Lab assay of single mutants.
Amino acid sequence: NRRVIAMPSVRKYAREKGVDIRLVQGTGKNGRVLKEDIDAFLAGGAKP
């Protein structure tokens, strides 16, 4: 169970979209999950 780095607003956005943030690959600094990562996940998967 890895620790997810994300701003509270991004965590809320993921919850609102029904996304398990632990499944999203973060592309920000130090692997931080960004809102754009949530959108990319919803569009068909995590960014490479």
Rank of each mutant, 00 (worst) to 15 (best):
N1I: 06
N1C: 07
N1S: 03
R2L: 08
R2T: 07
R2E: 08
R3I: 08
R3Q: 09
R3Y: 06
R3D: 10
V4E: 12
V4M: 11
V4S: 11
V4N: 09
V4Y: 05
V4C: 03
I5T: 13
I5A: 06
I5C: 14
I5V: 12
A6M: 06
A6C: 07
A6I: 15
A6L: 08
A6K: 06
A6E: 15
A6Y: 07
A6N: 14
M7G: 13
M7P: 00
M7E: 15
M7S: 06
P8D: 15
P8V: 14
P8I: 10
P8L: 13
S9R: 08
V10Q: 05
R11N: 04
R11C: 15
R11K: 05
R11W: 09
K12A: 08
K12M: 08
K12D: 14
K12F: 12
K12V: 10
K12R: 11
K12T: 11
Y13C: 07
Y13R: 02
Y13E: 09
Y13L: 12
A14K: 01
A14W: 01
A14Q: 03
R15Y: 12
R15F: 14
R15N: 13
R15P: 01
E16V: 06
E16T: 06
K17Y: 10
K17I: 09
K17D: 02
K17H: 06
K17E: 11
K17V: 13
K17F: 10
G18C: 12
G18F: 02
G18N: 06
G18R: 07
G18H: 06
G18K: 14
V19Y: 00
V19E: 00
V19S: 02
V19T: 12
V19Q: 03
V19K: 02
D20W: 03
D20G: 04
D20Y: 03
D20T: 13
D20K: 05
D20N: 07
D20L: 01
D20R: 04
D20C: 08
I21Y: 08
I21S: 06
I21M: 14
I21D: 07
R22V: 06
R22F: 02
R22S: 15
R22C: 15
R22T: 15
L23N: 14
L23C: 10
L23F: 03
L23K: 08
V24N: 00
V24W: 03
V24R: 00
V24F: 03
V24A: 07
Q25C: 10
Q25N: 05
Q25T: 10
Q25R: 06
Q25P: 13
G26P: 15
G26C: 05
G26R: 03
T27S: 11
T27G: 08
G28C: 06
G28P: 01
G28F: 01
G28H: 04
G28A: 09
G28S: 05
G28Y: 01
K29A: 10
K29D: 09
K29I: 03
K29Q: 10
K29S: 10
K29R: 02
K29F: 14
K29P: 07
K29M: 03
N30F: 04
N30Q: 12
N30K: 10
N30P: 01
N30E: 14
R32D: 15
R32K: 14
R32S: 12
R32C: 04
R32V: 06
R32N: 15
R32P: 05
R32I: 05
R32A: 08
V33L: 08
V33D: 00
V33Y: 06
V33R: 01
L34Y: 04
L34I: 05
L34H: 08
L34G: 13
L34K: 09
K35E: 04
K35C: 07
K35I: 12
K35V: 05
E36Y: 10
E36S: 07
E36C: 06
E36M: 05
E36H: 01
D37A: 00
D37I: 00
I38L: 08
I38E: 01
I38R: 00
I38V: 11
D39Y: 01
D39T: 08
D39V: 03
D39E: 10
A40D: 13
A40I: 14
A40G: 14
A40W: 11
A40T: 13
F41C: 11
F41S: 10
F41A: 12
F41P: 02
F41R: 08
F41T: 10
L42S: 05
L42V: 11
L42M: 14
L42P: 03
L42G: 09
L42H: 13
A43I: 11
A43F: 07
A43P: 07
A43S: 09
A43K: 02
G44P: 15
G44A: 12
G44R: 12
G44V: 11
G44E: 13
G45P: 10
G45L: 10
G45V: 12
G45D: 11
G45H: 06
G45M: 12
G45E: 10
A46D: 09
A46N: 15
A46T: 13
K47Q: 09
K47D: 07
K47Y: 09
K47C: 05
K47G: 10
P48T: 15
P48H: 08
P48V: 07
P48S: 06
P48R: 01
